[in-house]
C-alpha cells in the first residue's frame, strides 16, 4: 500500500460525489495519456510536511466535470471555466489530504497546466500514484514528497 493511498482514494471519491454528483472508482496501474491531451492542476503543501499533489485529467473529462460543476451546456465551457473547475477540485482534495499530514502545514493556491504543459516538482519524489475511472475515462492523483538533499 502506498503512502496515504486509501485516503487519497476515499477523499477523491467523496469530493467527486459531493461536489459533482459523479461516482469515480479506483483503477489499478499507472495513468498514461498523451501530454497534449492532459490538463493538470496541483497544490503545494508547505510547513511540517512538504510536497505537492498533482491531478492529471484528459481534456474530455475536464469538459464533463466543468459542465457538471457550473451547470453549463455542453461545448459552452471556456478555458477559464476549466481552470476554475480543475483548480477547485485539486484544492478540495488537497485540503483534505493536508489535514492528514503533520501540522502546521499550509496549502497553496492551485497551479494549472493546460494541455501540453507538464508540471515538475524538483527535489521531490512521487510517493503515491492513484488512478481512477470516471465515466469510462481514467484520471490520476499523484503525491510528491520533498527529498532531503544529501
Amino acid at each position: 500500500m502506498q503512502f496515504l493511498e486509501k485516503e487519497i482514494q476515499q477523499y477523491t471519491q467523496l469530493v467527486c460525489s459531493t461536489l459533482l454528483g459523479i461516482e469515480v472508482q479506483p483503477l489499478p496501474g499507472q495513468y498514461e495519456a498523451s501530454l497534449s491531451d492532459t490538463f493538470t492542476g496541483s497544490v503545494q503543501i508547505s510547513g511540517k510536511w512538504n510536497g505537492a499533489l498533482l491531478l492529471s485529467l484528459p481534456s474530455s473529462l475536464v469538459n464533463t466535470l466543468t459542465e457538471t460543476l457550473f451547470s453549463l451546456d455542453p461545448e459552452k465551457t471556456t478555458t477559464e471555466d476549466k481552470k476554475d473547475a480543475v483548480g477547485e477540485l485539486i484544492n478540495m482534495i488537497g485540503g483534505n489530504i493536508k489535514a492528514l499530514l503533520p501540522q502546521p502545514s499550509k496549502l497553496s493556491v492551485p497551479l494549472l497546466g493546460l494541455e501540453g504543459q507538464e508540471q515538475f516538482f524538483p527535489s521531490t519524489e512521487m510517493v503515491t500514484h492513484c488512478q481512477f475511472e470516471c465515466q469510462g475515462k481514467s484520471f490520476a492523483l499523484s503525491l510528491y514528497e520533498q527529498v532531503e538533499k544529501t
Partner: peptide, 19 residues
C-alpha cells in the same frame, strides 16, 4: 511558508487561478 518549487513547460506562462 514557502512551498517547494514547481516547474512547468509552457507556451503561455503560468496559470494560477484565484490570484
Amino acid at each position: 511558508y514557502l512551498s517547494l518549487p514547481a516547474v512547468t513547460m509552457t507556451e503561455y506562462g503560468l496559470k494560477i487561478p484565484g490570484s
